[in-house]
Design a protein around this nucleic acid. Structure first.
Lengths: 222, 222, 222, 222
DNA sequence: AATGAATGAGCCTTCATTCAT
DNA sequence: GATGAATGAAGGCTCATTCAT
């Protein structure tokens, strides 16, 4: 079975690339973990780099497969949709066990994008962003500018991503007693949803009025 | 000058470790960039690992030196303070040129913490977090729980960090025409400040009514 | 040929380890002498140390292969057997050419034993010692104690080994004119055999009279 | 104090060269043990090699100083003299503690002589040999040939040296229970003295008669 | 189609030594 | 006279890759 070896290597490569990074991961270790011959990577993938790119692609495929984009009945309220979206995103971010490596690898890609990056952004990231932007359109004032829509989306995504990106730091920063009880997916999703919806609500109301005056933003048209 | 070589190596090591990561960076490259002998790293630092740890530490020192925590006159309004804080944090996150490597290295540490991590969190990260928590105490309802305070702080930090963490992705996602005009530090700081203050305002108002969620947010309507 | 490289490395390593010692010998030199790639040592042996241990083991195997323990017809006189044993031992000690390195390496091991030492003593040295002890049993008084048997054996082995251990010194000490004529294996074997047999004969005779000494030989007259 | 450093280095170098050998010993380790600057070896001795040669020379000086050649009253019996000589030689061979390194270094020199060797043989070894030969002249038949005198001397020295050369092996070969009780200097000196005197006695007696017939020695004139 | 053997480049480190002070 | 700093050479080893089968 030709693609059996291919599959075994790919599955072994995922967690290893995610744990150690591209450079520190070795073909030897991956082949040993996969239980295949050392030459297999070059034979089936052409080299370490190609294997890496395919592993990254696999990571995104599995990630969306494992926690698909939420669906809702027609007429679902926008704030409900947002709650579901945030919950799904956090579930992907904080996945544990078998799925954990996928997001870990995604984070590495974010920090140091490879050539696979553009294609992956278009295929996997943008659809999620568009979904979020669609929800936000129902929550933002209709006259909100394009870049306002994007930045608001990033504000939400950033909140979710932070618990993965800085997870270790967060663990060190919060009091020991709080960790187990309050930093679970459900709790965090609640908080981020409430925080974001509160912001959107207030922004919608204060729109007619003036804006917070900060030093560097003149002639802003929201 | 006794510490001349030490300094040169340290300065050369910063950007290289930040660009390539610990594994991919080579002592050879660092020494070549510093214009010193290959053996200097071992002589002055004892090895690659110690050099790395000292480089990480230097990164944080320089980062805070370059953009110190903001100070304000007594009686400054809390929302003003928050705006200054966010602005400073973004300036550190999105620093360019000579300072860019410092945050790049911090991001790597977040993703894959080393032993230096604990000390760095206490020495550099926690003081910033405490500063932010102090500001939030003036903006959150007085009965806000401890973990609510922290999560709110992380919501703000997460928004700021996202433009560094996912900077490359953001660049690919937003329309070409928007990039230069709207994704500058000033614009971003404004947005995050407004978004966060709006959330805080609204939360303060709705506090008497709704309550902080029960732990496992099932079918709750906001 | 799968083990061809293994063999070549092993054969090249022998004389080099024997000449320079473990530390001074370099993997580079061994590989160059073997005409193989520098990485071969690590591939086939796992490292310099393992190669060394296998080389030591090979040395003993070849040594006994080259000069096997003597055999004799039933009923051979004990002094004849001793003569043959000493002759064989000296031949191993003073081997020249292709075989010289084997004993040279053994001598290094004696001076600074490695972990391989215990196994080698049991597998190669003890059988020879037991052979000698068996011969001595016919030549020593029946009431000779265990430690007397061993010490006598060591007296014989020590005489033989000395020409290898201190060979260089012996060469410097004896008159130039004597070297070629009288310090050949046959001559030396004769001498050691006659010396040792004479001692055994005399000890057998005087046994009834004097007794093995008390432990701390002060002013005892022989 | 210029020669204070010299002395400290020399004293530190002895055990280290003896333990590790010339190649494995490092100037760093020696200087660290001596508590002097790393450059001291080169400054005071000109280099590692010169330091080694001086260390070897010191070893022999101290060795003879610690256990001087025995002296005896006029008219002392030859076998008494031999006993004293053997005792002294064994004491040097099996010296422990502060003096142990001296013989260890001598053994290394024997196995792999350096340029210092010739001078050392003449200055330190030959006087001892001549002393032994003088004793043997009283114990060997008067018509004993020159090479017979030497070989007999080597037989005695070889027996003594063996417990140092192969000390580790001897420890592994003899039954555990015997080690402490029977392999002390006194016991060993007794045995070697008795063994050697017995041989000399017997040889003196059998002289008139024929000799042991072994295969390789024809026309031997004792 | 697949693999055990082998390769050459490059890694970090350690060494004895030298140099500037 | 003596030393901390610096150096160039070489060390063992690991790597991704290739080759012969």
């Amino acid at each position: 079975m030709a693609d059996d070896t291919t599959t075994k290597v790919l599955q072994a490569a995922g967690p290893i690339f995610a744990d150690r990074g591209y450079e520190a991961a070795t073909v030897r270790e991956i082949c040993a973990a996969a239980g295949v011959n050392l030459a297999s990577v070059n034979y089936h993938f052409g080299g370490k780099e190609t294997l890496y790119l395919e592993t990254v692609r696999l990571a995104h495929t599995l990630r969306l497969e494992h926690v698909p984009a939420p669906t809702w009945a027609p007429g679902t309220a926008a704030d409900e949709k947002l709650a579901m979206f945030i919950r799904a995103m956090l579930e992907r971010m904080l996945a544990t066990g078998e799925q954990a490596w996928q997001t870990r690898l995604l984070m590495r890609e974010m920090l140091q994008p490879t050539i696979a990056c553009r294609a992956i952004v278009e295929d996997f990231i943008r659809p999620q962003l568009d979904l979020l932007l669609g929800i936000l359109d129902e929550l933002l004032p209709p006259e909100a500018s394009e870049h306002c829509r994007y930045k608001t989306a990033f504000s939400i995504v950033g909140q979710c991503a932070h618990y993965r990106v800085a997870g270790e730091f967060v663990g060190l920063l919060i009091p020991q007693s709080e960790r187990a009880a309050h930093y679970q997916i459900g709790q965090l999703a609640d908080h981020i949803t409430r925080f974001s919806l509160a912001a959107l609500t207030e922004l919608r109301h204060q729109q007619p009025a003036g804006q917070i005056a900060t030093e560097n933003n003149t002639n802003r048209t929201f």
